[in-house]
């Protein structure tokens, strides 16, 4: 019973971070039909940005999360403006383009920073939640994830620009005849999506140890969340984050930690078969 509670607490905390991990991926997928294979690289750029800015400025890593958004969002904007928008609008072409970009980013980090593992040590102590000692920084990470997730949902649902972004997903041509330039919205969506990846990376930096290659493990989780939640469905994504966190945690605790990825993949395969539109059935196919 005690253990069950611990699993639940741990999963809920993780779920918020997983949700944040998946947000940017989901938006770019939903608005632009681009499967962002550079998502892992963007995460890790955010993590490194926090690491170095923290080393050199000593600013609060929580403040730096927002700086990461500017840094990685800027990188995303440059990538989109300078390259992606000129590529053929084909998912395959863009998949390879983004995989290529991602390799460039990872090897650049390797050259600049070496293969050393980095971490931002935050010693804020722990507090006890339902019998599980939880690092305070993890609770702050939870908070930041909720704030950014909430802000994104607010942006998309309650602002004019956000509604226009959702309209791009619905019907691009109709948006043209409303006099709205979808290119700018696409750029905006890509920038917001990558900025969120940067924020997620910044949050990761505060509690995991990472190297240039570490983006991959987290990108996999983000992909799983997006598929489970339904492509483009952010609320479904929130729910899926909890499912993924629960699955990963309980497989580790009750079964074997070597099987977490296997369990995750089986879950993804099942959902693709049975509920291709995601948990809430509202995603795209």
């Amino acid at each position: 019973m005690d253990m069950l509670l611990q699993v639940l607490v741990s999963s809920v905390l993780l779920a918020a971070v997983y949700f944040l991990l998946s947000l940017g991926l989901n938006i770019i997928l939903g608005v632009l039909d681009i499967v962002n294979f550079a998502h892992g690289a963007m995460l890790i750029v955010g993590a490194y940005a926090t690491y170095y800015l923290y080393e050199y400025t000593g600013l609060s890593p929580w403040l730096l999360v927002f700086v990461d958004m500017i840094v990685v969002g800027g990188l995303g904007a440059i990538l989109y403006l300078g390259y992606l928008q000129f590529t053929v609008n084909s998912p395959l072409v863009r998949m390879f383009a983004l995989i290529g970009f991602s390799s460039v980013v990872v090897s650049s980090i390797l050259v600049i920073s070496g293969s050393d593992f980095r971490t931002v040590h935050l010693d804020y102590g722990t507090v006890d939640i339902l019998g599980l000692p939880v690092r305070v920084s993890q609770i702050v990470a939870f908070g930041v994830a909720l704030i950014l997730g909430g802000a994104t949902l607010f942006l998309l649902n309650y602002t004019k620009v956000g509604k226009a972004i959702r309209a791009v997903v619905d019907d691009r041509v109709s948006l043209w005849i409303c006099g709205v330039n979808d290119k700018r919205l696409s750029l905006l969506a890509f920038t917001v999506g990558t900025a969120l990846a940067g924020a997620a990376g910044g949050v990761l930096a505060t509690y995991v140890t990472f190297g240039p290659d570490s983006g991959l493990s987290f990108a996999i989780i983000a992909f799983a969340v997006v598929i489970l939640g339904g492509l483009g469905d952010l609320v479904g994504g929130a729910l899926a984050s909890l499912v993924v966190a629960l699955v990963l945690t309980s497989v580790t605790v009750y079964w074997s930690s070597a099987l977490t990825n296997t369990a995750l993949f089986i879950l993804v395969l099942l959902v693709l078969l049975v509920r291709p539109r995601g948990i809430l059935g509202r995603g795209r196919v």
């Binding site: 004019k160 509604k163 959702r166 619905d170 019907d171 948006l175 409303c178």
Partner: peptide, 13 residues
């Protein structure tokens, strides 16, 4: 129309 948006939001756009 924009199917996922409300009537009001459709008009807004």
């Amino acid at each position: 129309l924009f199917p996922s948006l409300s009537v009001e939001d459709n008009l807004l756009l």
